[in-house]
Amino acid sequence: MAESTGMLVAYVTGHGYGHLVRLGEVLREVRARAPGLPMTLVGDVTEPLVRTLVPGPLALRRVACDAGLVQRDALQVDEAASLRRCRELDATFEARCAVETGFLRSVGARAVLADVPPLPFAAAARAGVPSLALANFSWDWIYRHLAAREPAFAASAALAASAYREAGLLLALPFAGDLSAFPRRVEVGLVARHPRVPREEVRRRAGLDGRPAVLVSFGGLGVPRLSREVLARDAEFQWLLPEDATTARLTALGLIYPDLVAAADVVVSKPGYGIVSDAVAAGARLVYTERGDFPEYPVLVRDMPRWLGCVHVSNADLFAGRLSEPVRRALSLPRPPPADTGGAARAAEQVLAALG
């Protein structure tokens, strides 16, 4: 494809790794098709992780784009702190929008891609730049849900919906919640990372023997109450905990996180788009636990079984280390046929079309 002049500016929410890694997959595909296209990533994210996701030159601009939700840990939302954060950022929305509008104009932005803070869509509309959203849920939907218990969230929901209505096109992903705020949408399918090292080689590098391997994965926040000492009581399985899957350790082994997911026989986690899509692409089974009153949870629980083998474990059993029985049940499930995971390529084509 001929190179486009101008720049692609991508924005990412600060809420969890899943949004960043799937946005990174789309940017990888864009880079493969337009190697010389300048790109900037805007978000409150760490540079080392970004560099593992997107090859080649990529400018990084550290900006808190949205409030998201404040988490106590991987399974608990701090609603009071989340509301305070929403109020703080909502109060400065217009000023921050003016800054982003100026930034887009100053760098010659040709398109904006965001997953999925509201701010960049309002800024892109004011700058006259086409914008695309990448999402399976939107913050207006999340805040409306919370407003049933805390009505003050309704103002944040309304502000987010107003910004989303300025988006040019939504690239809709599976496991979708209410995305009705976006005026136009196209389904792109599952955006997922794939392992890059063969499974047996990963197991060798990671020091795994012939026993089934169980990867306990709860993102960067983790679940401090779950310890290796508790899990090691059952020697039938090999337990891989978050300290076994740090970016530094995986880099030292020449691996990326999806390699470890593929090497595991079962993943234990909360259901979120990132880990579910990793497990689908790797052909792993999932033992999942509830994650509080988060409206994405029932959508994932409803839709996951057609994508991968999955078994529920309660928070109480998880924290007590009673995982062996649900792991055995998960191992007994057949693997679904390989899924279509070409969403990143389809999303990249839409982005390049917007770039002209």
Rank of each mutant, 00 (worst) to 15 (best):
M1A: 10
A2Q: 07
E3Y: 00
S4N: 05
S4P: 14
T13N: 05
T13P: 01
H15S: 09
L20Y: 06
R22Q: 13
L27T: 02
R28A: 11
E29W: 07
E29P: 00
R31Y: 06
P38H: 05
L41D: 12
T46F: 14
V50M: 15
T52L: 08
L53T: 05
G56W: 03
P57K: 04
A59L: 08
R61E: 14
R62E: 15
V63S: 03
A67T: 10
A67L: 11
R72F: 13
A74Q: 06
A81C: 14
L83T: 06
L83Y: 02
R84W: 03
R84M: 11
R85V: 05
E88P: 04
A91E: 15
F93P: 00
A95L: 09
C97H: 02
A98T: 11
V99G: 08
E100M: 09
R105V: 05
V107E: 01
G108V: 02
A109H: 08
A109Q: 09
R110L: 00
A111L: 08
L113N: 06
D115V: 09
P118C: 01
P120G: 00
P120R: 02
F121Q: 00
A125F: 03
R126E: 15
S131R: 09
S131W: 04
N136M: 04
F137I: 08
D140V: 07
D140K: 10
I142A: 09
E150Y: 11
A154Q: 11
A158T: 07
Y164V: 07
G168I: 04
G168T: 10
L169K: 09
L170W: 12
F182T: 03
F182Q: 09
V186S: 05
V191C: 02
A192W: 00
P195I: 09
R196W: 07
P198G: 14
R199L: 14
R203L: 02
R205N: 11
A206H: 14
L208R: 13
V216N: 02
S217C: 10
S217G: 05
S217N: 08
G220Y: 12
L221C: 13
G222N: 15
G222Q: 13
V223D: 10
R233V: 05
R233K: 11
L241C: 14
E243K: 04
A245P: 04
T247Q: 15
T247S: 15
T247W: 13
G254E: 11
L255V: 10
I256S: 10
Y257L: 15
L260S: 09
V261C: 10
D265N: 11
D265V: 04
D265E: 12
V267D: 02
S269Y: 00
Y273N: 07
G274D: 08
V280D: 04
R285S: 13
Y288G: 03
R291C: 09
G292C: 06
P298Q: 14
P305I: 10
R306G: 07
G309S: 09
H312V: 02
S314R: 02
D317P: 04
D317T: 11
F319W: 04
G321K: 12
S324K: 00
E325Y: 07
L331S: 03
L331Q: 06
L333I: 13
P334S: 05
R335C: 04
R335V: 14
P336F: 01
G342Q: 03
G343H: 07
A344E: 00
E349M: 13
A354G: 01
L355G: 05
